[in-house]
């Protein structure tokens, strides 16, 4: 087999437009899923540290469920199964009238999957603080809510910044799974170009480099944030 190189395919229409649209969808899916993952994940993570058995059990059940089923299968369940299981009016609305069904399915599926991982990081970040801080907060008369709000969460937030960076990068990468339900994000578009032009290497190179650049930008940005919120006197992360 011989391969005919033609890098110009990347800058010719419509393929450049395809790639840019793909990048756009990648950012839109990853961004929205990340917001959902943070909101749900931090809540679940906090639940797992509360002095309340029911709350902890619920948190554990959530994490174990979403962590032990492949993301691809979770997307299929949200996309193909859920509308059938819901009451007919809602199910039909999802199937017929929900705008951008692939997009919202990808956001919800990816967001709730990532939430389980964010929850684990949040829990670890809170538990790493040690019981003494919680005791000191309680001893000074702060309520449980106040202890979390003013002491535990601000410290935990700094603890979890590095692991959350890599979770965010995971969301960007995992957004590629949206192509399996028909949302052509960056990876999907490069695959599309390959099918249309047989210039897969060029298309894949473009997509791959875009991911590398995205990753680098995120890492640099978060390092800056880490430095900004570093606690004076405590050694910065190596």
């Amino acid at each position: 087999m011989t391969y005919r190189w033609d890098w110009s395919v990347l800058v010719s229409e419509p393929y450049l437009g395809w790639l840019l649209a793909g990048l756009g969808w990648t950012l839109l899916v990853a961004g929205a899923a990340w917001v959902l993952a943070l909101a749900v994940g931090v809540t679940i993570g906090v639940l797992r540290t509360l002095p309340n058995r029911a709350a902890r059990t619920f948190g554990t059940a959530y994490v174990e469920t979403f962590r032990n089923i492949p993301l691809l299968l979770q997307l299929f369940v949200w996309y193909f199964v859920l509308p059938e299981l819901l009451p007919a009016p809602i199910g039909n609305w999802i199937k017929r009238d929900l705008p951008l069904p692939e997009y919202w399915t990808a956001v919800i599926g990816l967001g709730l999957f990532t939430a389980a991982r964010v929850a684990e990081q949040t829990r670890a970040g809170i538990q790493a603080i040690g019981r003494g801080q919680a005791m000191a907060a309680a001893a000074s008369g702060l309520t449980l809510t106040q202890s979390y709000r003013y002491i535990l969460l601000p410290i935990a937030a700094r603890n979890v910044l590095p692991p959350l960076t890599s979770e965010f990068l995971n969301v960007v990468k995992n957004s590629s799974l949206a192509l399996t339900i028909g949302l052509l994000e960056l990876t999907g578009q490069s695959r599309q170009i390959e099918s249309a032009t047989f210039h897969g290497i060029e298309a894949f190179t473009a997509a791959t480099l875009t991911y590398v650049v995205l990753t680098t930008v995120v890492i640099v940005a978060l390092r800056a944030i880490e430095r900004l919120v570093a606690i004076p006197g405590l050694m910065a992360r190596a």
Binding site: M1, S176, L177, T187, E194, G200, F204, Y211, L214
Partner: peptide, 25 residues
């Protein structure tokens, strides 16, 4: 670091395309 910044699906596509090219069949 390079591999860890690329989605697995992308890598699967790459090798699905490349391996036959390299091997020649």
């Amino acid at each position: 670091n390079g591999l860890r910044s690329v989605p697995l699906i992308m890598v699967i596509f790459w090798f699905y395309l490349l391996v036959p090219l390299v091997i020649g069949r």
